[in-house]
Design a protein around this nucleic acid. Structure first.
Lengths: 247, 247
DNA sequence: CGCGAGTTTGACCTGCCTCAACTAAAGTGG
DNA sequence: CCACTTTAGTTGAGGCAGGTCAAACTCGCG
């Protein structure tokens, strides 16, 4: 329950997510307005940020760390329905209660706004509303892509899909071409991965071992993954958009 | 490929989806603007309305009929990622190419707008942008609820979930209390149901037979379903939000 | 050192898939 | 009007991917 306030007061201009979050399109004036109503909150890994069904009285952006959206059935089966990375938005303007739990997967810092003032501000500044629509449409696409993963992919493909996704944005791709190996740390436990992929943690573990044996990935400890050939990993994922650089 | 134009020109005021579609919040003036750029298109059951990857040069609302959003892997595995019912919106302002196929499941009529003029109009009329955000947030919630179905539910629960969803809005619930039986027609073939649920059509067929044998549902022919006790069906779905009326 | 959280691995089991045969209803055309 | 095909759905038999249960291993930490 302890909340740690690591960030005292950061100027929006210097904010690491300035150009990707809801505020991305804001001009200097709009930024001032936001700056007036924002406040930071920190959560420790494992803490629940919002409980499903609870009243939500704030919205906000993930500044650093990772959170997950989780749905749970009465008998305890759980399904992660989204992964929130820095710059992702939490909460629903115009909606009172949360439809799922939001849990801090790692230590996390959020830039929050009380819902009411934010909604008012949104009415006044179309830039924010517009950006939020864009972000929501992106999330919808991501959710639908994940439906294909959950509904039709094999366990091995599921693991490969998750690794590709994490690799794609966690390791800053782009500067290096195709061949140089990509290295990153898994931000999720095996259990969390299982919850995301609709598998059991045993199956996750087995498939990771299998991918390692087949040298699709290399492991350093339990969490550090390196991918010698991104193309092969994406083939395993069944995505096979031909990587772009294979053509 | 034949397109049938059934609707010559319908006044927006008389439109059956007037109060649920993107235009729901529009005032008379805004409605006039929309009326100026709208046009109707009809598609026969089975026609593909938009191909994945294609340039989208229009957006629009489903007026009548049902369409489905479908993703396909190279080896042919397919997953339906959304069901579009009357008043649902198709297309992405600010996005060029479609991320998935949109297929007419039944004969369907759409109210379309060329994308460019619509986007301009959206910039000028916040009501539309706001409504679109609300609808997109709703779709996102629906997609995430479906992720739980795909990732964690058994075949029987999946079928029950699908039937509940169709029952909930297809048969106009609300006027009748809990006990009077709900009757509706399945708008989907067994195969389409399988694609939606991440199952095979054989499993769908078997589970429907099983639900019938257990008298959770009754069948009249292959498509007409009646649900004697909605509460029991929802229990089978594992949703068990206790139906609301059980409390 | 001993504990516990996270992970791996093994052995067995089962729910769903696969393949295949069959039925029902609805055209189609001679 | 009846054989023939087509399309949608049902049902059965058998196999396998992934779940379940259980044991052991690793590693950081008090």
């Amino acid at each position: 329950m302890t909340q740690i306030f690591k960030i005292d007061h950061t100027n929006c201009e210097d904010c690491p997510i300035r150009h990707r979050a809801v505020c991305a399109n804001c001009d200097v004036h709009e930024l001032e307005l936001l700056e007036g109503i924002k406040y930071y909150r920190s959560f420790e890994a494992g803490q629940t940020i919002i409980w499903s069904g609870d009243q939500m009285n704030f919205v906000g952006s993930v500044v650093s760390g990772i959170a997950s959206l989780t749905q749970t059935m009465e008998d305890g089966r759980t399904q992660m329905v989204g992964l929130l990375l820095p710059s992702d938005f939490v909460g629903r303007p115009g909606r009172d209660s949360a439809p799922y739990d939001v849990v801090a997967t790692t230590d996390i810092v959020m830039c929050c706004f009380r819902k009411k003032p934010f909604e008012e501000l949104m009415g006044a500044t179309p830039h924010i509303a517009h950006r939020l629509l864009q972000m929501t449409l992106d999330e919808l696409d991501a959710a639908r892509e994940w439906m294909l993963v959950l509904g039709r992919k094999t366990a091995r493909e599921k693991i490969a899909s998750l690794l590709s996704i994490i690799a794609r944005r966690d390791a800053s791709i782009g500067q290096n071409g195709s061949s140089s190996p990509i290295v990153f740390d898994l931000p999720l436990t095996r259990e969390a991965m299982a919850d995301y992929l609709g598998l059991t943690l045993e199956t996750v573990s087995r498939q990771i071992s299998a991918l390692k044996k087949d040298e699709i990935i290399l492991l350093e400890g339990k969490r550090r993954v390196s991918v010698p050939d991104m193309g092969r990993l994406m083939e395993e994922a069944g995505d096979d958009s031909d990587g772009g650089y294979l053509v």
